[in-house]
Design a protein around this nucleic acid. Structure first.
Length: 586
RNA sequence: GCCCCCGUAGCUCAAUGGACAGAGCGCCUGACUUCGAAUCAGUAGGUUCCGAGUUCGAAUCUCGGCGGGGGCGCCA
């Protein structure tokens, strides 16, 4: 925002340095910290350092101070700037509070829900996330993927990319065959209950694992069932289709509840055959070695690339000719680029698959696909249970998603009941849902992708401190003020009074949102938005406590009302790209 | 053995290579007749795991340790 004014001043500074015959060193501009006013700043250490390296006998620190003083003395500030200061080798350029505050608030209110949206980049970016396996249950480990992936999609979209949100359903593979085997032998004809379908599906899978662990001889039956699937035995295919649909129906409920959506859904089963064709191609090209029947079909990446213990060996087909995850992923990667004209393909997958992902990408490169370098593995750490216990559906150490959400809603409802007992029951339920889901999502997003999250019931549903409900509450309070004036926001006028520290800080934070969006998109880190939303809410809460709006004199009241409306808007926008709703009351 | 990630206040975590390392929780003390106290103000809490190096400047980059976690041929 205010790029024109900023660019003008920045180029002026560069010109002054240039005219003084100083080395050309790009300046890095940041915000001025520790100030009741706001503006932009840059240090001159880099320039001074370059001078010193060029042989000039200067002390970098004192020279930077000198330069900063020289520049600020010569600078012709545009009227939008209040003053320029040289401090400790820094140039601080202060904005004129009145003028900038008006501009910031005006643009927020003009742009509304689009405030912060970046210019269209014209880039097609595919983000694959969620990737659930049918015939298994959703648990909190999957939730991190969903929440992260979905937020990344919304952030990229908001930042200006054209995003294709994709899901990749694990609807076939050994786990499905094991489930079918258990169903056919011990649960033939049963149908899932209408409530808790994923629990039932997951339960049957865990049972299959248990039976097979207890009696390894039964593995033979599973293998022969896999062969029947491979031959597309009609009975197996029909049963598979039926049971797979049960899972898909259950998934849809979860996605709807969490407000998660997809533009395209791929299924493993649809890329299985084409994957095998690619394996044949790899063999004929001499990239893959066919060691069947004794061994599998493998690609020795280290041997091909001349690396050592880096890319290792990728198995692309089982020795019995059945497909693996890799078989299908090869085909899918190609299909994605063929179907959409992708500039970038992002895979949101947990960090344990880092080697595997790099193998797939590298193999694509070896096959001659130039786009391989535009594939990116967005790795995130897993969610553990207390005591470093890994969540595993086969171990039964899972916290089911439906249980988590149900419990969170229950707890949220108790609080709503206590804080706001007069609300209609339906409203209470709606509010509780927004708070519960917001709290869960925020707890997963407000940690960096590389950090392991230890799941804890209380932490996941935390409604105190740095958590979604705090942020939602700030927006709700803003909304309450606006309701008092029937949501009639005064028209834009000059700011006719001196803004205090809280007001300046509030406008400062409002202004930063578009930049935070770009940064979060660039780094693929929703955490940055989560932090920003909290900081903004905190600043707004300060403003709320210290700056009376409705009882102020007219001039003050009018601009403060506009600040309140703008704050509500930006808080809402920032939570919105994290997939968190803001209720009207709570 | 090779590779990746993490290590910051008692706990959970932040911090585009920049000015004084910050929040939340917890502890203690205050503020509701006041636009909603799910709030706010204040107190206390640090050898940023250790050691070198690069740099004008390092929690951040490089190297070497220590501690924890993960990955490495037919699971996904």
């Amino acid at each position: 925002m205010f790029e024109k004014e900023q660019t003008l001043v920045k180029s002026q500074v560069a010109e002054i340095l240039n005219e003084a015959g100083l080395p050309d060193e790009p300046l890095k501009w940041t915000w001025i910290p520790f100030s009741a006013h706001w503006g932009i700043a840059t240090s001159l250490f880099a320039t001074a350092s370059k001078e010193a390296k060029a042989g000039k006998p200067v002390n970098v620190k004192t020279r930077a101070t000198e330069l900063a003083e020289m520049v600020t003395a010569k600078l012709q500030l545009p009227p939008e700037f209040e003053k320029a200061e040289a401090v400790n080798g820094y140039i601080n350029l202060y904005f004129d509070s009145q003028i900038f505050a008006k501009q910031v608030v005006d643009s927020v209110l003009q742009q509304g829900k689009d405030f912060g949206r970046g210019e269209a980049t014209g880039k097609n970016v595919m983000v694959e996330y969620s990737q659930p396996n049918t015939h298994k249950a959703f648990h909190v480990g999957h939730l991190r993927n969903m929440v992260l992936g979905s937020a990344v999609c919304e952030i990229l979209d908001f930042a200006g990319d054209h995003v294709i949100r994709t899901n990749y359903i694990g609807d076939i593979g050994l786990h499905v065959i094991k489930w079918l085997w258990n169903y056919m032998n011990f649960h033939a004809g049963e149908v899932p209950p209408t409530e808790g379908m994923t629990r039932w599906m997951g339960g049957l899978y865990a049972e299959a694992i248990k039976r097979l662990d207890e009696n390894p001889d039964l593995e033979e039956q599973v293998r022969s069932l896999f062969m029947r699937w491979d031959a597309r035995d009609p009975e197996i295919v029909a049963l598979w289709q039926q049971t797979r649909q049960w899972s898909m129906d259950a998934f849809k409920e979860v996605y709807d509840l969490l407000g998660i959506r997809f533009d395209h859904i791929y299924y493993e089963s649809e890329v299985e055959d084409s994957g095998k064709e690619i394996v044949d191609e790899l063999i004929s090209k001499g990239i893959a070695k066919d060691e069947r029947p004794e061994g599998a079909v493998i690609v020795d990446l280290d041997e091909i690339l001349g690396t050592q213990e880096k890319y290792r060996v990728l198995v692309v087909l089982r020795s019995d000719g059945t497909s693996l995850y890799s078989t299908k992923d090869l085909s899918l990667a190609i299909k994605k680029f063929e179907q959409y004209h992708l500039d970038r393909s992002i895979y949101v997958i947990d960090v344990r698959q880092s080697l595997y992902m790099s193998q797939i990408f590298k193999l694509m490169e070896l096959m001659g696909y130039a786009w391989a370098q535009n594939c990116y593995h967005l790795a995130y750490e897993i969610v553990n249970l207390p005591g470093n216990v890994t969540i595993a559906s086969r171990e039964g150490t899972v916290v089911l998603l439906e249980d988590l959400i149900t419990e969170a809603e229950k707890r949220a409802l108790v609080i709503v009941q206590e804080k706001n007992p007069d609300l209609a029951e339906a409203v209470k339920a709606e509010v509780a849902r927004n708070i519960a889901i917001g709290a869960i999502k925020y707890s997963l997003i407000s940690r960096d992708n590389t950090k392991i999250i230890t799941f804890d019931w209380n932490a996941a549903m935390d409604v105190n401190g740095q958590a979604a409900p705090y942020i939602q509450y700030a927006a709700v309070r803003a909304n309450s003020i606006l309701r008092k004036v029937q949501f009639s926001i005064p028209k834009s006028t000059q700011v006719g009074y001196t803004l205090n520290k809280d007001e300046v800080e509030l406008v400062d934070y409002l202004m930063r949102f578009p930049l935070e969006v770009q940064r979060a998109a660039h780094d693929l880190r929703p955490l940055l938005i989560a932090n920003y939303a909290f900081e903004l809410s905190k600043v707004f809460s300060n403003f709320y406590n210290n700056c009376p709006v409705l009882t102020a004199d007219e001039q003050t009241r009018d601009f403060r009302l506009r600040m309140v409306a703008a704050s509500k808007q930006v808080i809402t926008n920032s939570l919105s790209i994290l997939g968190i709703n803001v209720p009207d009351v709570m």
